[in-house]
Design a protein around this nucleic acid. Structure first.
Length: 168
DNA sequence: GCCAACGTTGGC
DNA sequence: GCCAACGTTGGC
């Protein structure tokens, strides 16, 4: 009997927060092959999402936080699934976490994403709050600090429509 | 295991 | 700078 076909699922949408002062969409676009590791996530919930749920081909909205106009500015795609975040082992890194590893292995992991589009119309937080179709989107909830958030297919489709992505 | 203190996030 | 929300830490 032939091996069962690998379970296939549709690509999911995610939202990834980043402070543009630290790492912006432009920084991703300027990275080699427009690809970067999403390092420095130090929250278990966010880690678990990346480790257990992120699959190749999933689409990630890049959200700029802690800036003048917080909002979604572009789209990236998962090009490498979860693997150890070596910055946790590097004392010179801002993300060094000496308590995070056991037997030389860190509990933290990361994925790599490649830029896919810049939004012609960045979808600002203020605009999303006014958009009935985005009701229930996690980033709009009070105190939603999670840096990695799931986005439903319907919300993802609407954000793409509003953002008018320009391929990069 | 409880919970107070403290630190961080992030919009405003 | 303020402050609400929430995660982590550590004493007990």
């Amino acid at each position: 009997m032939a091996a069962a076909a690998a379970a296939v699922r549709s690509p999911r949408f995610w939202l990834m927060k980043t402070e543009p002062v630290t790492f912006s969409l432009d920084d991703l676009l300027a990275s080699p092959a427009q690809t970067s590791s999403w390092e420095g996530v130090r929250n278990y919930q966010a880690r678990n999402l990346m480790r257990d749920e992120f699959k190749l081909g999933d689409r990630c909205f890049i959200y700029h936080s802690s800036c003048a106009e917080p909002g979604i500015v572009g789209l990236a795609e998962v090009v490498r699934e979860a693997h150890p975040d070596e910055t946790a082992l590097d004392p010179s890194s801002a993300y060094y976490d000496e308590k995070s590893f056991k037997d030389g292995v860190s509990r933290w992991c990361m994925v790599a994403v490649q830029a896919r589009a810049r939004f012609r119309n960045p979808v600002l937080l203020s605009q999303m709050r006014e958009e009935p179709g985005l009701l229930g989107l996690m980033v709009l909830q009070r105190g939603a600090r999670l840096s990695i958030q799931p986005v439903s297919p319907a919300h993802g489709a609407l954000i793409l429509k509003l953002g008018k992505p320009q391929k990069v």
